[in-house]
Design a protein around this nucleic acid. Sequence first.
DNA 1: CCTGGCAGACCCGGCTGGTGAGTGCCAGCC
DNA 2: GGCTGGCACTCACCAGCCGGGTCTGCCAGG
Lengths: 371, 371
Amino acid sequence: MPEPSEPVRLRVELPPPSASDESSGAGPGAAPELDERKVRILRAIVTEYVARGEPVGSKRVVEVSELGVSAATVRNEMSALEELGYITQPHTSAGRIPTDAGYRRFVDDLADDPELDGPRRELIAELLGSASDVEDLLARTSSVLSQLTRLVSLVIAPAIAASRLRLVELVSLAPGTGLLLLVADTGRVDKRLVELPAGTSEADLDRVRTVLGEHVRGRRVDAVPAVLRTLVEEAPSELREVLAAVASAAGPALAEDTVHHVFVGGQASLAGDEAFERQHLSRLLRLLEERATLARVLADSTAADEPTVRIGHENEVEDLRSASLVAQRYRLITDGSLGVLGPTRMDYATVLSTVRAVAEQLEHHVTDLSR
Amino acid sequence: MPEPSEPVRLRVELPPPSASDESSGAGPGAAPELDERKVRILRAIVTEYVARGEPVGSKRVVEVSELGVSAATVRNEMSALEELGYITQPHTSAGRIPTDAGYRRFVDDLADDPELDGPRRELIAELLGSASDVEDLLARTSSVLSQLTRLVSLVIAPAIAASRLRLVELVSLAPGTGLLLLVADTGRVDKRLVELPAGTSEADLDRVRTVLGEHVRGRRVDAVPAVLRTLVEEAPSELREVLAAVASAAGPALAEDTVHHVFVGGQASLAGDEAFERQHLSRLLRLLEERATLARVLADSTAADEPTVRIGHENEVEDLRSASLVAQRYRLITDGSLGVLGPTRMDYATVLSTVRAVAEQLEHHVTDLSR
DNA sequence: CCTGGCAGACCCGGCTGGTGAGTGCCAGCC
DNA sequence: GGCTGGCACTCACCAGCCGGGTCTGCCAGG
């Protein structure tokens, strides 16, 4: 009794190998064959459970799925599905609920998610259309995602490493303090206080500005630190100190800080969901505050151009094991990613359509903005 | 039985009139006199309940508070305190817990909060010390607040209306699109995409830059929109369109956007707290996402230079009625505010000390940064 | 005015029995 | 051989009940 389900659980815990066809539903691959009837029953159970939130019994399956057999037959099939690890019962004499593997199978079998319906597409277009700049656009994207799915939305700004600097500016804020401004061609602005050496004159600053303008503007962001180091070495001695201060300020601004740009929305939906216990809730919220981890997780989940689904235990991060993640890459000069986070019991079909549609429209509006 | 407590509840719901001495503890004012023993008993109940989380009975009060009387006497006093509305019992034959009014009284009677202990002060100094710019400083402030109190921290950046513009820059991102950069002397940077009229040349942009540099740089932020309008009117016709685009972009960037800069930290602590039910939790999280409301609430609660406490029903915002807010104003060129949000059952003495200490040190480090 | 004592209220945990949903199994039917 | 109806069984759930423990309110006496 305890052993037979082992191979299946094993498969579930190793999603990466078959990652490419995971969300496409094209190749059933190593998954055990299921006859048509089992597939329909599983689908009925998932759909019903997602909709009602209660374990679904053989009787309800018969009512819902229009296969012309009796409840007893369905029971036999359900017993087999349980043996295969796709469904389980919370306790004896309760209906069945899908396991993570069951959801996985269900998602894989989704032929391909239908287009999002018109009204929703329009809503997205409307909300994204009035964005004033890229940052605003991403914030709105996050907002529209969480509104449409009623789940937690995540949007990660594209890394600026591969973009180019449009403007490098050094503003004097107060004696001894400057503000280094770096503007990338995505419209992203980073800033960093610079401690200027004592005795730096306004004329010195002007010369530094000129040097920066000539040698740094237009360079790829990830090349800038090296360029700055060279500039420091070659600089006339009176500018060296200032340039060194600039270089040491620019490094971190362009490296780490830059990665953590994450927009999160709809956190309240987590608290409203009965599926999460107090402890899970707390951990998930903590995770949502750790922007760096979040960015990594999301980036890892968005290799392909299709939406990717990570269900429960498929997530590598411990605290995410009680939840599912649906994420997709988008392109805005370089790659960014967006997605939603919610209970494993979510409406995958609709969520997939929504994530896909939002990503598409985001790209459209981005090109609108940058032209 | 139901009526006698009415007048007290009324007082609680009208904190504003006596707002000035609310948190000072200087004037008992209209509050009913309490003899020394009642005060000590109330204090014992609040302290014990905050520490243990369980209703406290007469026996425990005797053990904890070293007044040399019997439990029976304490019971009589407690009965009186209940009559006055300061404490209540969750059910018959349970111990007492403080009401919002009880907490209020307790807070008012706190002579004045002691200095925060050394180690904690040092921790604050250490964490704030390594801030790289003002925005970073405020983020760190939020982080340290939530770490020390294990509550939700809130930090609102000072409004930039009264600060001056250090730099106005118009960057050309792509043909037809510019990015307007506004840097205030607080180090705050706002940006906004500008749709440039077709056929705008680089030379035009240069001229616009010059005009902006001459007339806008150094002006108070709230004066800028008016200045821009004048510039548009007086501009040579070939620049008028560009300037108009800039003016229409600058307005909103300087107005609304600016107010919503709120740093929130430690939200996970809400979920861990048993005091909040699912529904409250969800509402509080939603509130934390509405940055505008949040900013208003916090600004309203920080009139004086002392920390202000809003306990449960004293909060005007419905969703906050299940929580307490401890907030204080800080000055960084203009006013900002910071504070924490948690269950009414919080350690007010420690929280008050912490909020005060953090606000103080924030101001120190700010002057460090801007000198 | 304080105190010890005592009755009463009530939460809580455990136990019990009834109900209902859903299962597993089996014998019989097509 | 697969499907079906029927039936016994298993629990979760609910309500009621009981005993133990706690804390209160009250009272009579110091």
